[in-house]
Design a protein around this nucleic acid. Structure first.
Lengths: 154, 154
DNA sequence: GCTTTACCTCAAGTTAAGTTGAGGTTCTAT
DNA sequence: ATAGAACCTCAACTTAACTTGAGGTAAAGC
């Protein structure tokens, strides 16, 4: 069975990150520890889950700041329960769905667009400087905005 | 019809970016210009396409370095043809497909994982420190790696 | 008991991707 | 022909996310 208390070095090794990164995350309020008699950091196994989530999130481009905010929904007075984590998971899924949708649209538009040779500033979705795809969420947004631009340019 | 030559300010405005960013991109070798008699930058309309691609790529987390490498497949002695851009588009699509696959796996694993409460270091995909999902591309990679870890841990 | 390894703090350095500012020149519009 | 907008260079600053290093303490192994 796993021990209930982890040292900074153990956590670092298990997670494949540097000790300095753990110091840093703690300083940023992303993880927490207490100290032993000799002033060394001690962790609950819970920290491993947090770090996993941090790393997973970073891979998809979420900033530490956003991660921190997500973690604020977790209780800091007690160890998060399954339900606490499930709630966070739900929120993340929405975000992930959004990102997936964005990527898919981008891929599909690139196919028709990047190689089309049209060079029409007013029509080509790619030239749209301020598309809000990630937020807007549904439909042929790129094309809609291209239409709007075409109208404006007249 | 659009003029064949653009000033730095026009490009910046059209693309919704700062003039300083154009200077920066040029310095990084991502875009090119020539100078007029008064030493001011002049651009071919082609630059708009480049910037659109840069911006689109950045949104999905591609670094300028990677973008630069992708651009190196474009000819620098002549204006890129439709075929040149189509080739780049193809490469990007592979990359985008990879990222989409990664996000989908992540989302699905989060669903089963983040809220499961298992805390089993050896089994939980999320604890896998060095997953190479993005590169490996296919199959139940997360789970495979969790298996490997379980074996190693014995 | 002693040595080696792990840990501590705090300050400074690093990389990416820009931004800001000073000091000076060129365009453009009236 | 002149004012104001746009442009130029170069250096320094900014933010995120860490890393490195110095100088010192604690813990673990033999």
């Amino acid at each position: 069975m796993a021990e209930a208390v982890w040292s900074v070095g153990k956590v670092a090794k298990r997670c494949g990150i540097n000790v300095s990164t753990l110091h840093f995350y703690e300083q940023q309020g992303l993880i927490h520890s207490w100290r032993n008699a000799g002033n060394q950091r001690r962790y609950k196994p819970e920290v491993l889950r947090r770090i996993s989530v941090i790393k997973a999130a970073q891979k998809v481009g979420v900033s530490l700041e956003e991660i921190k905010q997500a973690f604020e929904s977790l209780p800091n007075n007690r160890t998060p329960t399954v339900e606490d984590w499930q709630q966070l998971s739900k929120n993340w899924q929405k975000m992930l769905d959004g990102r997936i949708a964005y990527l898919q649209k981008l891929r599909d538009n690139l196919a028709g667009c990047i190689g089309c040779g049209c060079l029409s500033m007013t029509r080509c979705p790619l030239y749209n400087p301020d598309d809000k795809l990630a937020e807007s969420g549904s439909g042929a947004v790129l094309l809609d905005q291209a239409e709007q631009r075409a109208r404006m340019d007249r």
